[in-house]
Structure formats: C-alpha cells, structure tokens
Design a protein around this nucleic acid. Structure first.
Lengths: 221, 221
DNA sequence: AATAACAAGATTGTCGACAATTTATTTGTT
DNA sequence: AACAAATAAATTGTCGACAATCTTGTTATT
C-alpha cells in the first residue's frame, strides 16, 4: 500500500502516521477539532508527541492550527480541491518532464511492463487498478524525476491530501479504462525522452481526473 | 521587507522566525549542526520551543533532521539549486497562469504602475530593484493566483530557501535590466488575460534567473 | 597494530506539571 | 429579559526532569 515506505522510528512518528491515516480515511471527520489531551489518552502517549504529530500534519495542509485555540482537520471544499489539483498539475507535469530527462531506461521498462500487465485486468474493469495501480504509476514517475525536493513535496504532503479527497468522496472504480490509455501515452512520451510532450500529457491527465472528482463533488452537495 | 507580514504570537513563532532569518542570512552557516540545548540557552527559551521551531524549519526544507541524532542546516549544492528552481518554475508558472484568470483588474493596474515607477531607477542601474522590486513583483503574482495553498507553499517554504541561495551566493545587483523587461512582458500577458502566455513567460523568466545563479555558483567552486 | 566489546559522556525523545490564554458559565446591573 | 462584567473551567503553550539513543573514548583480545 505504502510505496514510499516510511518507518516509524520514534513514538512521534507512529502517532503522526496513525493520526494521518485516521484523518485521510475519514475515521476522524473533516473539520473536526483535534484535542491534544483527548488524542494523548487515545494513543497512550504524552501531549508532547501529539503536538509534534499535529504540527507535522499542519505542514502537510491536512490540519489547520490557530495559536492558543487549537487544531482542526481541514474541511473539504470544491475550492480546496481545485487548488490542490492545480498544484498537482504543475508539479506532476514537471515531474513527467524531468522523468523524460532523468529516468533510467531500466525503470522506464519496468513501468512499461507494469502497465502491460494491468491491461487485462483493466479490460474486465477490475477495481484494483484505479486505487493501487494509478498510484503506483504516478509515484514511479515522480521518483523518476530524480528531484528529491519534488519527491518529498508530493509524496509527503500533497499525495495524502489528494487521497483524503478521493476517499471521502467515494472515488473508487470509475474512469479506469480511459485513465489507463492516458498512462500508456505518458510512458511512451517518457520512453521517447520527449519531456515537452510528457508534461503536456500528464497535465491533461490530471485535469481529467480533477474534472471527474469535481463532478462527483457537485453531485453530492 | 516582509510582504507577507507574519506576526509572532507565540514564543515558538518568534524563535522560528529568528532562527530562520539567521540561517537564511547566513549567520548560522549552511550544513552546521543545530544543538537544541545550545539554541535554547542562546534564545533563552525552553528546549520544547526550539524543537518546535526546528520542526517547522524542517517542513520548509531549510534543515534536515535525523531521529535520535539531530538537525543540520541544509547544505547548498548546485543540485539543490537546480531542484529548487525546477519547482519554482512549475509553481510560479502556474501562478502566472492563474493570475491571468483570477487577478482583479485593480491589482493588475497597481502592478503595472509599480513597474512603470521602477523604470527610471532601473535605467540608472539602481540596486534596489533586484532585491525588493523583484520580490514584490513575484509575490503579487503569486497572490493574484488566488490559490491559497499555492500562496502558502511559495511564501512560507520555497521563497525562504530560494533567498538563502541568493544571499549566500552574493546575488545582488546583476541582471536587473533584462529581468525588468521580462517582468513587463509577463504583466502584459496577465493584463491580456492570456494565461497560456503568462505561464510560458514566467517559466522562461525563472529559467534565466536560475542560469544566472548557477553560473555564479560554478564560478565560486 | 587492528578490531571488538565495553563504558562514559552527550544529545535527543518523552513525560508530567505549571503558566498563559481562550472559552464557557455565572453573576450583576439596567 | 438582555446585556456586560466577572469568575470558573478547559485548552493550549512552556518548562524542567528523566529515559532512551547515539557518539566518543577506553580497554581488552587476537
């Protein structure tokens, strides 16, 4: 599930991961208040480690904090979704461009064959692809950019927030086949070392998936 | 100086700002270790607030921390510079595109007249422009994007790291006039509501300034 | 002499308690 | 009854102390 394996060495790490998961998966609902004492009893750690975890979540834009008042889980809005996907478009577009420059041939081949392997599943509309496969695809390209700061930004911060939107809007299953085709074309551009095209295609790909979510979100309201 | 005024309400805020400034301005040298006890005596606060400040600096990519070992100020490398400017190119390019969409006419006019006011100074190569004027220009466009997450990302994190490179490589003064012309063209594109062009021009503008710094950096080595 | 095991020192991680601030409740006045 | 001020409760911010971990220096063994 976690492609970028993060191992919790410290107690604060563990609390951070747990808390993040509960929020992203919706077990702690969006907009709710995060009481430090409450959480410290729940996770059986001191308030200090809870504070540190909350601070880290704030840096990820998953919670908002006001001095002397407290922290709240962010609320999911259509504006926020739009903003997030504009950022993803810019950063992942750049990642695709850089991957076309920097990604080793071996990794490109792996990615190619990964997609080929998914082809059968996709054609019979297996749900697996959308969740894990799509993620794996994006993550490999991000890593392929070989821009460490970009990798950190996307996989530590933006990714989890994006997932929070997807999970809590119940995005599972749809748009599988078209997304698959888009993936194919992106990889082809990267394999051809055409950064310009890779970026354009990735940006379109993200625009499409944004529209897909935005529709769902407006339906729910 | 600080366009985005941040006011320190808590003691931890103040320490964070002080520490960040000392690092960015080079009074605490790049790559040096940040001892919690040392800093807590220096700033006359408890270790807890120093820890919190360091955590925030870590989120800004200004320091790196290893569990049970400690935090170090990041080292400035040509790779790091390249990575940073790739990110700036992506994000500020997007900001320019969004500004062309969303920036109110009044703000565009203000920006326009701001540039006109700078024209005279620039022609006699006044140093003022490069530092404050360039910053003001970029910041106004970022705000004009009206993407709150983008604004936060750029002005809280990336901006300070970029400044750290500029300050510590002694980038003051050069490239004034050409940068000024680039600014003019970008604003024109925004005024014409041509997001496509605004993004392209902004990206070029950032590429140029990256090259400018990269040359300096390779000369120093 | 080189390496490994061990011990001493220093640094970070975690905790509970107190201080400062905010929020909720009560009291008092018109 | 409505509003304001004062008070009480709860929450966050800060602190110093202890525990766990890493680093350094020493000793012992081959």
């Amino acid at each position: 599930m976690n492609f970028f394996q993060e191992k919790a060495v410290t107690s604060s790490d563990k609390t951070f991961f747990q808390l993040r998961e509960e929020i992203v998966e919706g077990h702690i609902s969006a907009g709710s208040k995060l009481s430090e004492v409450e959480l410290s009893t729940k996770y059986e750690v001191s308030r200090a480690v809870v504070r540190e975890a909350i601070n880290r979540l704030e840096a990820c834009n998953i919670v908002e904090r006001k001095a002397n008042v407290g922290a709240r889980v962010v609320t999911l809005t259509s504006d926020g979704l739009l903003e997030l996907y504009q950022i993803r478009e810019a950063l992942e577009g750049m990642a695709a461009r850089l991957a076309a420059q920097n990604m080793p041939d071996a990794e490109i081949n792996q990615l190619s064959s990964l997609l080929e392997g998914q082809q059968d599943e996709v054609k019979q509309r297996n749900v697996y692809y959308q969740e894990a496969g799509d993620l794996d695809f994006h993550y490999r390209i991000i890593v392929g950019s070989q821009n460490q700061q970009l990798i950190t930004m996307l996989s530590n911060g933006i990714y989890h927030l994006a997932r929070m939107y997807r999970v809590q809007l119940g995005m599972t299953g749809p748009r599988v086949t078209t997304a698959y085709d888009e993936h194919i074309h992106i990889v082809r551009a990267i394999a051809n070392r055409d950064g310009e095209l890779a970026e354009i295609l990735m940006r379109r790909h993200i625009q499409y998936s944004k529209n897909n979510i935005a529709v769902k979100l407006s339906n729910m309201k």
